[in-house]
Nucleic acid binder design. Structure first.
Lengths: 175, 175
DNA sequence: CGTTGCTGCGACAATTTGTCGCGTTTTCAA
DNA sequence: TTGAAAACGCGACAAATTGTCGCAGCAACG
């Protein structure tokens, strides 16, 4: 009934999400690691597009208009780990319908692809806890710093000691 | 040549801004401390509206549609002391044309009222701090629960008291 | 070697949360 | 209109977490 397009440069992320979305009942879920591939497909109307902001060198921002023209999706959702008000405003102006920050829970994502009239919010089914959100975010930054705790701590604006404690608190058992 | 409407509950802020804008050359600058007063005026087209998010009890968010209908402004700029992606998205969906955070420089504000839409966007590359990530997430869930603190706290698996403290920690002072 | 950078961790003060609980408002249906 | 239920705001105090110093062990490097 619905078909989706996912565009992200993280392949692992794509495959996992693709599978889960298909199990949820979306008719088809296409994935691409860059915008050009997505635009190379024949034109068709699509229910929703999930577009990552950071696609290597290019900015997902610059692809919003083209993707909207090509697929005319009901939803064009921007996804990013590095958010700011400025980019949000810009994305919405260019035609995005939503803008969310990683990490995002699967349930939440699905809900955003549902057809809800604008400005009519439905309570999120099962939001992540603040702790979960923080944990995933830390993991992402840690990964981008090749596991360097000191560098990660600085990037996150927190103290190395605190980061250490958080890490050892969740890695050995509680995960 | 241009006329503006400013809506904010801070009178001092209004008068200062009004004077400076008039000196800059805007034809007329009307100020109101609440939305109803602004809507009580006869309908007319207006160049721009500056709307504060925190208008005492009301949420500026709920007034966007009405103001747009009444004045059909070229610019409807939201202004807030505390910001989040979630509220930005919501504001843009409802018809805001821009969203900026206090404190805002006068020059910058004037620029936003110019008809220059092409934004030399600056996609920042720094990761958010855990606190920011948490804040964004909380705002998302809070918005989806229509501002209901109790329900939000439960959804997030945190205690109502803690949520309250977090919320009041960022909204009142950051002005 | 000596220097530099990262890590692991103890210790203690400074903050922040978890919890109770109680007196107002709000909300909403009878 | 009115009364109960649901929310809210917030004081208070213990429990838990974070901010800071500081020191020692290690690996890399010229």
């Amino acid at each position: 009934m619905h078909n989706l397009i996912l565009i992200d440069d993280d392949n692992a992320f794509l495959t996992v999400l693709q599978r889960r979305l298909q199990q949820t009942g979306f008719f088809s879920v296409s994935t691409y690691t860059n915008v050009n591939d997505a635009l190379a497909e024949p034109k068709s109307t699509t229910h929703g597009i999930l577009l990552d902001m950071m696609l290597g060198s290019e900015s997902g921002l610059d692809s919003i208009v083209a993707l909207n023209n090509h697929y005319q999706p009901t939803h064009l959702i921007m996804l990013t780990g590095y958010a700011s008000i400025a980019t949000t405003v810009e994305a919405m102006r260019r035609g995005a319908t939503d803008y969310i920050t990683k990490p995002v829970g699967f349930q939440e994502l699905v809900q955003r692809f549902q057809d809800v009239s604008p400005s009519k919010n439905v309570p999120l089914a099962k939001p992540m806890t603040p702790a979960q959100v923080e944990w995933e975010h830390i993991q992402r930054v840690l990964l981008s710093h090749h596991g360097n705790v000191s560098a990660t701590a600085e990037a996150l604006g927190m103290h190395r000691r605190s980061l250490q404690r958080k890490l050892q608190k969740f890695s050995p058992s509680k995960n």
